[in-house]
Design a protein around this nucleic acid. Structure first.
Lengths: 239, 239
DNA sequence: CGGCCTGTTGATGCGACTCAATTCAGGTGG
DNA sequence: CCACCTGAATTGAGTCGCATCAACAGGCCG
């Protein structure tokens, strides 16, 4: 019993070592963090936490994919963020004395590590490097949020989609060029919610891009045909 | 010369003591911060920094008001955030190795304290309390950004305006009730940009609210008449 | 007084959401 | 192995919110 717990902590420490958030953190600190981390699994479709609820701690996604959503009364939803393995989520709720700002839902079966608020904050005070990493993480999230605000307020759907495709390509291949292929996350309905629109509009926009010779669509994959025109499309604004 | 510099630092330290970001910070640390802070003034309409430029540090607004904006090619702009006295801005750019995410423009003559990136980061590593405050500040900003995203993606203009009025009232009087009055920031054109719309639409929406008996409008001031209906309006979504 | 900026009001057009019908793919059970 | 069911994707027609364009009124200042 005691021995398996110790082994378990060791495994968790191994995992933490590879996470960006904990880069540059000493082994002793990692060990402390590994001990406080609680393994939590969630099946597909499960709600991990709900908007407005008091924050108990934050999560680190190990495997699977989750979405953070805001939803309206009639069930329409906007996906604030898609979270992949190695990323943390709900960090902000831990520091600001604020409730969870959105609802987290598992898109696939997920394995997470949960860091309880109290112990984590206590440890944070003793680890400037961790605080620094956390600040960097939050800053980059904020940067992304402001980009989304810009998109929603100033750009139309076609520009948002074009930018998304380019970003996805950049993220996957490290460059943007004709012929490169990238795949869409989960379903198109999800992507539509992420782009702040609905599946019908996304479908129409994709087929318009196709007929304009910007992209090729095959199943869940998109091949870039005309990167230059796509880039110009991404700049376009509501004018 | 040396003496005036010392007095100057003392004055700055006095100021810092009252700022939320530095609450709970010891006098020695405050003194260090006061010494590194550079007084910078900006006339009305001045650009403090521009989106995309490399971040040199962040600012603390002492007097005046500034707006952080994203603008499109044709000159239409969206105000991400209005900053008042006592608030810091551009903090995130300092931690994330990212450029300034938006452009900062003075709406009035402004006095600011500028904290250069290097010295501030160095000091941050030695002050867990400061790091903690900074995390709390960023978290609350993020919370606000996600609310804005929700508004833009799921709500229509009338709901956004209703929520804004209620928030303003809450912020000014600490409660929401019929008869309470709150004032609008700068011009209505600015407010429109903050709500993600344009002045014409804002004007129409305000007069509709008035004819519905929700509010009274007088010059730059708004008086709440029907808080319940206003609250219901704020929930409304695009359906 | 004449310019300028802000705000208001009307007419028009466009983008995108809604609703509805249909097709398609995947998984299940008989 | 095929019929069936469910959820996703597509396509068309209609509607609506809101941006655009344009004209005009009021306040402020040189």
């Amino acid at each position: 019993m005691d021995r398996t717990a110790k082994e378990d902590t060791g495994v968790k420490q191994q995992i933490l070592r590879r996470i960006y958030l904990f880069s540059g953190i000493g082994e002793a600190d990692l060990s402390t963090l590994a001990r406080m981390a609680v393994k939590k699994t969630f099946p597909r479709q499960a709600t991990i936490f709900s908007e407005g609820k008091e924050a108990q701690g934050f999560y680190l996604l190990i495997t699977g994919q989750i979405k953070m959503v805001k939803s309206s009364l009639e069930g329409k939803e906007y996906i604030i963020r898609l979270v992949g393995p190695g990323e943390s989520f709900a960090e902000a709720a831990v520091f600001g004395e604020i409730p969870y700002p959105a609802t987290a839902i598992a898109l696939e079966d997920c394995l997470t590590l949960f860091f309880p608020k109290g112990p984590f904050l206590q440890h944070l005070a003793a680890s400037p490097a961790l605080a620094r990493n956390m600040l960097a993480t939050l800053s980059r999230l904020m940067f992304h949020l402001t980009k989304q605000l810009e998109d929603l307020s100033l750009k139309e759907v076609s520009a948002r989609l074009a930018r998304y495709i380019l970003e996805r390509c950049q993220h996957t291949h490290g460059e943007i060029a004709a012929g490169l292929q990238c795949e869409l996350p989960t379903t198109k309905t999800q992507l539509a919610a992420y782009l702040g629109t609905i599946s019908e509009t996304l479908s129409r926009t994709l087929s318009r891009f196709k007929s304009l010779g910007l992209i090729e669509v095959d199943k869940g994959k998109i091949t870039i045909v005309d990167p230059v025109a796509l880039h110009k499309m991404a700049q376009g604004n509501k004018s």
